[in-house]
Design a protein around this nucleic acid. Structure first.
Lengths: 206, 206
DNA sequence: CAGGCGTGTTAGCGGTCGTTAACTCCACGC
DNA sequence: GCGTGGAGTTAACGACCGCTAACACGCCTG
């Protein structure tokens, strides 16, 4: 037996990749089962040999991506020497991930609402944990940043880094460098994240 | 006649606002005509007294927002004294717009593909012109930035600024300040946008 | 060679959705 | 007071869509 695990079920992944592309372009409800089928050479209901339902496809691809994103991010942070390099590594990780999975990133940020309630809970939990990793690293690398600000900053950086599907004017590597620099500048420029109290009521009575 | 233009057809705008909220949450195809109707107190087909079709609603709200975005941006740039303040004003304009039109911004960046071909052309043209305004200002305010890089940077900043619907942890004003600072830092930190040649082939043979 | 089993096909059902038709009601100008 | 038109209602139609049923084919194993 030359290959003990003979490329563990390539077909499912192939289908998910095609579906991701379509969902990213037209939205979950804008894509029919027949569209997905013909994108992988089979037609229509043949997909039900591989997935229980259309919702299950979206569910699997969104939980998969959320898990990978969290695991990879956590790993980079754990391997980093100090807070500053942890932040840089986290940014690099997200940049690479977004550039190599454009369709998935798009679906991930647009189609959360179309999930089953159960899947939605699972994905939201993973997302929250990923944000938590960012918040902690930001607060360590950029001292005197309060938590709500760090959280908002993290979401903003996600928006910046996930903007990659919308512009193909630069090649992959140049885009990676640009996004890395912009994100680090946005986060670490002195004063960017400070002086914004949680409720802003405190700031006013200064 | 006390009011010659008696609040020019408030109903249409009310319907569009409700529809925008729903489209932002569930996507164009995820919202039924009945949902929109009941959101404004009437039910189902009553909407056809105000709009020719469901597509027409999306078309009108997307062209409207694109026109406002372009007009306001152009205006701020024209009124600015120098390139640096033009960039700052442009950022402030977009921040305010995004914060005051969260649902519309979301629909605008997610549901372009669901438009009629005619509407799609119109909206894309307006979008392109808006990006052009940004590209010109960036290249004047941040010298030695090549055009593709400026374009990619603009898209990135849009992603950053449009991230506002996803986080409600800060109040409006704090959020505005944070986004303004992060965007300006990302764009104007020395070295952020330089040294990335268009094809990157030149950079390699250095 | 028999028999699963994985993978695919086409036909069709049941529900939903956008749109139209036909009708009602009320406010207002002459 | 009467008619006209804006705004809304319910009923219904036709198309589409997700999914199931029933059947077909080829490959590996005993």
């Amino acid at each position: 037996m030359p290959s003990p695990a003979p490329r563990r079920s390539t077909r499912r992944e192939q289908i998910l990749a095609a579906a991701a592309e379509l969902f990213a372009q037209r939205g979950f409800h804008g894509v029919g089962i027949d569209d997905i089928g013909s994108a992988v050479g089979i037609s229509g209901p043949g997909l039900y040999r591989h997935f229980r339902s259309k919702d299950a496809m979206l569910g699997e691809m969104l939980t998969d991506i959320s898990e990978k994103l969290l695991a990879g991010g956590q790993q980079r942070v754990d391997d980093a020497a100090d807070a500053a390099s942890a932040l840089a590594e986290l940014v690099r990780w997200h940049v690479d991930f977004a550039l190599d999975n454009r369709a998935l990133i798009t679906v991930h940020e647009r189609n959360l609402a179309n999930l089953t309630e159960a899947d939605q809970r699972r994905v939201r939990t993973l997302q929250r944990q990923y944000v938590e990793v960012w918040v902690e690293v930001i607060r360590k690398a950029v001292p005197s940043t309060d938590e709500p600000t760090a959280r908002a900053a993290a979401h903003g950086v996600f928006g910046l880094l996930n903007s990659t599907p919308h512009s193909k004017h630069l090649d992959r590597d140049a885009m990676a460098v640009l996004l890395q620099r912009m994100a680090m500048a946005a986060l670490t420029t002195p004063g960017s994240l400070t002086g914004l109290s949680p409720t802003a009521s405190e700031a006013q009575r200064r």
